[in-house]
Amino acid sequence: MSAVLLSLFQVFFLMALAPAVSWFIKKMKAASQNRVGPSLIQAYADLWKLFRKDMVIPETASWIFHAMPWVLFASTLAAASMVPVLWTRSLFGFTGDVILFVYLLALGRFFLALAALDTGTTFGGMGSSREMTLSSLAEPALLLAFFALSFRARTLSLESMSVYFASEPPMQVLFFTSLAFGALLIVTITESGRIPLDNPATHLELTMIHEAMILEYSGRYLALIEWSHQIKQLVFLTLLADLFFPWGIAAAGDFPALGFSLVFFLAKIFILAFVVGWIEIHSSKLRLFRAPDLLAVAFVLAILSLLGQLIIGRGL
């Protein structure tokens, strides 16, 4: 019972932490531009404000428009409940594997892209088309990176993969995990809609992708969408932490270990967020038609991670 409660707590913890991570990157960006930036409270206050505001629904919207935020939120939470956070178990990790994880996120995106087309505005169609294009290239890279890792770990479940890589001496697997890490990092940047693939801070029609899709949303729905987006970003960072830096994660649900694990987890997440933020600060947004090159790099990295194992590992 306590195991279930602990796993449930992990999901709430991710939900609660997600705005803070986004805030952290915003703050980094502000610092790099000699601005003060918002305070931590602001991240939560924004969400709270949006949740309480009334909404304006476009006159051309159908039920898809109303259904999307809930589907997106639920599918993101379902994916979030599959990753181990503080200890090596997760709430619903037993229901599926990495493939399910990827396709749950795809379900949310499917509705997001549909809702963008629903109102019949130019912005929506543009964002929808771009988002689906980029994600159709990012998804195979993500899957292949997972498959490269599972090739070694001989399991597709996120929990067991994390446990496996915790037990393996990091140096010994570095030759392929480093490449898989590169691939997953690029996918993380894509999926969280950050520079150089998308710009979270713009409303310029030439550059925006995610923002273009949700342009017609307001109030509670917008809060749900934004929150889902933040949770998705944190889930990807957690995934990176679980798979590549699984050190310090608690093997059992006892309390000293969990406290330890919490400290480690926060450190890992904020370091990874720092990396993502650093890339965002130090690169400029790619032209839409250059973005596939970056995703091709992710795909090649993932393939090499697999090939490397064949060449150096079991294959010979």
């Binding site: 990827v102 396709y103 795809a106 995106r109 499917f110 892209a113 549909l114 087309l117 629903d118 929808s128 689906m132 294009t133 994600s135 159709s136 290239l137 998804e139 195979p140 890279a141 899957l143 292949l144 498959f147 490269a148 090739f151 795909f299 993932a302 393939i303 697999l306």
Partner: peptide, 23 residues
């Protein structure tokens, strides 16, 4: 595993295709 990733690519493209078809 590469065949599997290509199946994933086809799946992602199918999603794009049917967002277009329905949308």
């Amino acid at each position: 595993p590469i065949l599997a990733a290509l199946l994933g690519l086809a799946g992602a493209l199918a999603a794009t295709c049917f967002v277009k078809a329905f949308g």
